[in-house]
Design a protein around this nucleic acid. Structure first.
Lengths: 362, 362
DNA sequence: CTGTTAGCGCGTTCAC
DNA sequence: GTGAACGCGCTAACAG
């Protein structure tokens, strides 16, 4: 196989085009920037031809260097494995596309160290702004509203000590929606299951909202126990196998107790699990299936925030987040900041949508 | 809220650092590039201090402009929605990290037009190479081995008329593995279900391999019908609802026929579905569940290439691709090409792993 | 060991 | 209308 080793033909530069078109760089630059009115039709045609012939494409890097802006924005993602993230990304991409931005996607894969490094890398590439779905940033790199640093918009989670625009789910409303649904359907023991939430604002909010709704429960008009339902919070540390094991065991005990409970509770199926997000829901489902077999759904109801692809297949009830819009809005916010908007930090809380499936219907 | 509008402090440049350290730009540059041996400890300390004080971070763009290489590579993805893609991405990220590369992730979202635009954009940013998980590129932009253009490595799918390194699953072996498993377990009617495969090489290979294995089947040593199993191919166009409907209806007919079949086939569960990838498997599962109810698995067996998160939950058998390694190797290949390696195009076919679950055990 | 000089590819005055 | 010259932030000879 002796392929003639063709030397890589250096990409044409603006200078090459100028020479080819028999003119100066200035005119080419003007052409590229659409200042057509300042070019004689004749020159314009020559330029067009030259560009075509050389297959010229302006070097964005050089442009950015000169102009001070490169149309790059950073997109810092905590976990691409979570379907939520991918969906948000779709919105981000669409918006970027519409606004002529190019997103640099950085995947921290749930490691704070990675996150730090990526943030630094983005700085280094002089991105004009960052959309942060953080896991632990407390960087000075980011710009608090009105301060120095690089403009940032938060998605789903706040960052300690950073006042910035933020867009995400209306957690309070979403949790209330889910909890009420469960109460209305007569579940009198509800477990809210969530990953360790000290560091993640959205998890905190969800858990707090759950406790609040449970403690303030009213008889919703006939159906459901009149305020008698009990709520528990279970923390599931998906990253720590040992701790995970313990939590799951705790859950098992509770489930057993509920099943063998005397009185009216002998009928199974009065206990429901409310997963704070899809990864948690999956872990729960896997565990329950392993424990109770294929028809685990007859024993426990499962409701989850997020609507992963397997939800429909398995028939669990979910609260779908407006992910696409979240991503889209985030970019819009960022774009405004980049353009210099100076308002105070804004919050954009979008509503979730309850999708009722068999799991929670009794 | 009157936040004092702080002017964005221009990021420090190498010139600033030089001034601050009372020296010339060259020394700073040397420091940055680790040429420590050429710097007096004293100067070095001053530079260090100055950098610290100014929070200086070299501008990658400018570096790239000068050096002619910016350490950027493009990663063109057909569909981030497919878990396969995300997994490959993890490998890519790890490898990039190890090699000091920065991947620009572009998501075509199954639209050829997007793909074209992204490819052009990448060119514009002067990426040093591209990893392509294509859907329809036939671009001249890409460099065939030994030709001009930008170095490219293919993942999972070939591209018409482009001779380039490629890494992916050993489709032939994987399909054989799956098919044999089904035959060994006594299924005598197997449907290979795949998306339209004219454009996608991996789908073609899988389908062809299936037909080949089925036509060449031998009595595998006692178990299974002695070469009597029948194989069919069903094309599922997930993008076209109407066509999808028709295909599914065809499948239903076949299933009904098999069930009411006289002779030995009256025992249900002799028919198995072999999904060419996870999206297909999901669609099938959803359909079957809608048609036969929660215990659809008792009626039909399902085996799929790809091992999505819901596979374990639902108990279907799968063939897991070595996704992480695929991504990793792709970057390694690309890196070599970037460094100027001139060998003929290489293929790296990695083996899949059969994960047997309840669905296909009879 | 260290500073000076000349570009990398491009945009932008500012004269012609 | 058009082009020359300068500089963006940085690296790479080339002197000292």
């Amino acid at each position: 196989m002796s392929t003639t080793p063709v030397a890589i033909p250096r990409r044409a530069t603006i200078t090459d085009v100028a020479r080819e078109a028999g003119t100066g760089k200035t005119s080419i630059s003007r052409y590229l920037n659409g200042e057509m009115s300042v070019l004689s039709p004749e020159l314009r045609a020559r330029i067009e031809a030259a560009i075509e012939r050389l297959d010229y494409q302006p070097n964005q890097m050089a442009r950015g260097l000169k102009r001070g802006r490169n149309r790059l924005i950073g997109m810092l993602l905590a976990d691409l494995t979570n379907p939520y993230t991918v969906e948000v990304l779709q919105g981000v991409e669409a918006a970027c596309h519409a606004l002529g931005l190019m997103p640099l996607i950085c995947h921290a894969a749930n490691e704070v160290e990675m996150e730090r490094r990526y943030l630094q890398l983005l700085t280094t590439y002089r991105v004009e702004g960052v959309i942060v779905n953080a896991l632990g940033v407390r960087e000075e790199t980011l710009r608090p509203v009105g301060g120095g640093g690089i403009p940032a918009v938060l998605v789903d989670r706040m960052v300690d000590g950073l006042v910035a625009d933020m867009v995400g789910l209306d957690n309070r409303a979403a949790v209330e929606l889910g909890t009420r649904h469960l109460l209305d359907n007569g579940f009198d023991e509800i477990w809210f299951v969530v990953q360790p939430f000290e560091q993640v604002s959205s998890r905190q909010l969800r858990e707090a909202a759950f406790r609040e709704v449970m403690s303030g429960q009213q008889a919703p008009g006939g159906k459901g126990g009149k305020g008698g339902a009990r709520g528990h919070t279970l923390v599931l540390n998906l990253a720590d196998p040992a701790a995970l094991e313990r939590s799951l065991a705790e859950l098992d005990h509770a489930l057993d107790a509920a099943a063998s409970d005397g009185g009216r509770a002998c009928k199974p199926g009065r206990v429901a699990l409310f997963a704070a997000n899809a990864p948690v829901a999956l872990r729960l489902a896997l565990h329950l299936k392993a424990r109770y077999g294929a028809d685990w759904q007859a024993r426990v109801a499962l409701l989850s925030i997020d609507d992963p692809e397997w939800a429909e297949l398995t028939g669990i009830t979910t609260i779908r987040q407006p992910t696409y819009e979240i991503g889209y809005r985030a970019v819009e916010f960022l774009h405004e900041r980049i353009e210099g908007v100076q308002t105070t930090a804004r919050d954009c809380l979008l509503p979730g949508e309850l999708i009722v499936r068999a799991s929670t219907l009794r």
